[in-house]
Amino acid sequence: MTANKVAVFRKEHFNAAHRLFNPAWQDEQNSKVFGKCSNPNFHGHNYELVVKVVGVPDPVTGFVIDLKFLSDLVQEHVLNRFDHKNLNVEVAEFATMNPTAENIAIVIYNTLRPHIDQQHDLQVRLYETERNFVEYPA
């Protein structure tokens, strides 16, 4: 018999600015591909982050993961680094990577993954707007 897996979620919020552009392109091409998002003066989003951890509840605690631990982890490793920041300028990974929602989700996942027991599955869902969001891994 397979053990019962349960998904638990932690939802957080952060605000950040970014600019989508390819430095190898002229402004015209950046504008054509990225539209208003390539504004040289940046633009911001109110991001909603949902971190999903899947596993079998511990027989002693009943937890898949202690949600206080998960909250603290997200605060320390994500919110402290991303909230009210210019992602292009203040987050090292985006010095050489375009800070699209897709890439932000991958960076968040890679930041959190080493801190969560490998027996648990991890997924990051990032809402850039109410209607646009990404999940990693898919």
Rank of each mutant, 00 (worst) to 15 (best):
F42P: 02
N86E: 05
A24I: 05
P40N: 10
A92T: 14
H120I: 00
T100A: 03
N22A: 00
E76C: 01
P57W: 14
L79E: 12
I104Y: 02
R81V: 15
N4I: 14
H18N: 08
H120E: 04
H43P: 00
R113A: 13
F133G: 02
G62H: 12
E90G: 07
L67I: 11
A24G: 06
K85G: 07
Q26C: 09
A3Y: 05
V74S: 00
A101K: 02
N46T: 13
L73I: 07
V6K: 08
Y127Q: 05
K85R: 15
Y136I: 00
N41W: 12
F69N: 10
Q123P: 01
V78A: 03
F82C: 09
D83R: 04
F21A: 03
L49E: 13
K68M: 08
V50Q: 11
Q29W: 08
E12K: 10
V60F: 08
A92G: 06
V54W: 00
I65C: 11
E93I: 02
I108V: 08
P59M: 03
R10Y: 13
M97P: 00
N86I: 11
V6H: 02
D27Q: 15
C37L: 09
I116R: 01
G35T: 07
P23F: 06
P137G: 04
Q118D: 07
V60C: 03
K36D: 12
G62D: 08
A92W: 08
K36N: 09
L79H: 08
P23N: 09
V51E: 02
F42K: 14
T111D: 00
N41T: 14
K68Y: 10
F94S: 09
V74N: 02
H18M: 14
R113K: 15
E90P: 05
F94E: 12
F9R: 10
M1H: 11
W25A: 03
N88H: 06
Y47M: 07
D27M: 13
P57S: 14
T129L: 03
V91L: 04
D121R: 05
N80D: 15
V134M: 03
H18F: 12
V33I: 15
V53T: 07
E12C: 14
K68V: 13
E128K: 08
K52G: 03
L20N: 01
D83N: 08
H77I: 02
E12A: 15
V64C: 07
F42T: 13
H13F: 15
E48L: 11
K11C: 00
E28L: 01
V53M: 09
N132T: 12
A101V: 06
N88F: 07
D72P: 06
F9K: 10
F42W: 13
L20F: 10
S31I: 12
L70S: 09
R113S: 09
N15K: 06
L126M: 05
N4S: 15
N103Q: 11
Q118Y: 03
I106E: 06
N41R: 15
H120S: 05
H43A: 08
T129F: 01
N30R: 10
V91H: 03
N30P: 13
A3Q: 10
M97Q: 14
F133E: 00
A105M: 11
